[in-house]
């Protein structure tokens, strides 16, 4: 599903973010990528979203070599990947329903499809009753649930989460992790970048550790830990 072969990334300023990284994530896996700040975790997410291109090496996602995807076809590729961010990145001037529907409008889904799919996704993340609320009236955990609903509404095969619990308290962080685990159990491959080791240990999933741009550890977990 996701395959990195000898991937390196050096920024224009000469900073080497990733050094000869090779890893393989199978369909349906739940994987944590951990490491200190500046270790290269976010660069890895950016490479997978094709926001950046590697300096060397090969990245294959869903059987496609990312270097062979032209600029015109990047949107098609990104539609198959959902992403969630630490700061939620919700549109503050739109309510919960509109934020989720936005993801479908952007890919030019039909009105009927939007009306059917958005309420379903909101009920899945437990926010059906708050569909008219603006993001600023929600707690951090609720905002992240909206972001997850938005990431999943177009039924992606892969969900990338960059520090999804970074702005949440312990309880909400745990709730979000349980939700991500449910999503994974429903068949979506989930990749979570985090430095919250407490949660990582409690979840007992596969953990890839990156330090100074290199993979230093890759430990298999127990898939049914939760």
């Amino acid at each position: 599903m996701i395959k990195l072969e000898h991937v390196s990334k050096t920024y224009e300023a000469g900073v080497q973010a990733l050094k000869d990284v090779s890893l393989h994530i199978m369909p349906g896996e739940f994987v944590f990528i951990v490491g200190d700040s500046g270790s290269g975790k976010s660069t890895l997410i950016k490479l997978l979203l094709k926001e950046l291109s590697p300096t060397s090496g090969k990245i294959t996602v869903n059987g496609k070599d990312l270097s062979r995807i032209s600029h015109r076809h990047i949107p098609d590729y990104r539609r198959k990947i959902g992403c969630v961010f630490q700061n939620f990145r919700l549109l503050q001037d739109r309510n919960v329903y509109e934020n989720v529907a936005f993801a479908m409008r952007v890919i030019e889904a039909g009105k009927r499809q939007i009306k059917k799919q958005v309420p379903y996704m909101l009920s899945l993340v437990g926010l059906a009753s708050k569909y008219r609320s603006l993001p600023r009236h929600l707690s951090g955990g609720e905002q992240q649930r909206v972001a997850i609903a938005r990431a999943l509404v177009n039924k992606p095969k892969i969900l990338l989460a960059d520090e999804p619990t970074g702005n949440l308290d312990g309880h909400n962080a745990w709730e979000i992790m349980k939700l991500l685990d449910q999503i994974n159990k429903a068949g979506t491959t989930v990749v979570v970048v985090t430095h919250n080791m407490e949660i990582v240990r409690a979840m007992n999933k596969r953990v890839i550790t990156i330090r100074k741009g290199s993979v230093v550890d890759d430990q298999k977990g127990d898939a049914d830990a939760i």
Binding site: L91, V106, N154
Partner: peptide
């Protein structure tokens, strides 16, 4: 700017 960035990340075409 933020809205445009999100649009691009979730697969909006340039024309959209």
């Amino acid at each position: 700017k933020e809205e445009i960035a999100i649009m691009k990340l979730i697969g909006a075409r340039d024309a959209f």
